[in-house]
């Protein structure tokens, strides 16, 4: 490909990402890592909602630091992203999302990332986006506990709902969430967001 064409493609990609607005529901293991990946990739605007504060037990897998313990997660995440790229706009919403609040918070987002811990909350958000945000696609995760067998993590594409995970490994005492697998799932979600924002995957072998 000629240099000016490559340059043009890069500019288009950059512009599309810079003008995108992506919602992230939950700022724990999935949400914090996904948000950072999207910010580094150049997504211009992130709407992140979570009600919780950073706890020392979160530091084994979530994108926070020891000196942020006790702070609202969304504010700590906004600071961390600001240190990576101050041009990324982070709308930090400290609230517990229900269907009404989710529909209001993520209005205008072309993609919403489901990054909750609790399965019932995941179901609530998926239904809310599918029913009440007809312009948005939801990228959700199910089954990301434990470690190993990474090839079992798959992607199920169902129109405006895309699911990542193995769909069976629930978090429990024996099966804790661990940084590598949670990070893989978070970045799978982020990669799917890029694919949606850029209208498809990057050309193979390019």
């Amino acid at each position: 490909m000629r240099f000016d064409m490559v340059e043009e493609m890069r500019n288009q990609t950059r512009k599309r990402l810079a003008t995108a607005r992506v919602g992230i529901a939950g700022a724990g293991g999935l949400g914090s890592n996904c948000a950072v990946a999207l910010a580094r990739a150049g997504v211009g605007s992130l709407v992140v909602a979570d009600f919780d504060v950073v706890q020392s037990s979160n530091l084994d897998r979530q994108y926070y630091f020891l000196d942020q313990v006790g702070r609202p997660k969304v504010e700590a995440l906004r600071d961390n992203i600001g240190r990576i790229d101050p041009n990324v706009r982070v709308e930090a919403a400290t609230l517990r999302l229900d269907a009404d609040k989710a529909a209001a918070t993520f209005a205008g987002c072309s993609v919403v990332v489901e990054a909750f811990d609790d399965a019932a909350a995941k179901a609530m958000l998926i239904e809310t986006v599918l029913e009440r945000l007809p312009e948005a696609t939801i990228v959700a995760a199910s089954g990301i506990a434990g470690w190993g067998r990474v090839e079992a993590l798959g992607v199920r594409r169902m129109g405006r709902l895309i699911l990542v995970g193995d769909l069976e490994s629930a978090v429990s005492e024996e099966l804790p969430p661990m940084a590598p697998r949670v990070g893989v799932a978070a970045c799978m979600e982020a990669d799917l967001v890029l694919e949606l924002l850029l209208g498809g995957p990057s050309p193979q072998g390019a």
Partner: peptide, 10 residues
């Protein structure tokens, strides 16, 4: 038919 389980973890 497709049936997918949502399980906790995040």
């Amino acid at each position: 038919v497709e049936l997918y389980h949502l399980v906790s973890g995040g």
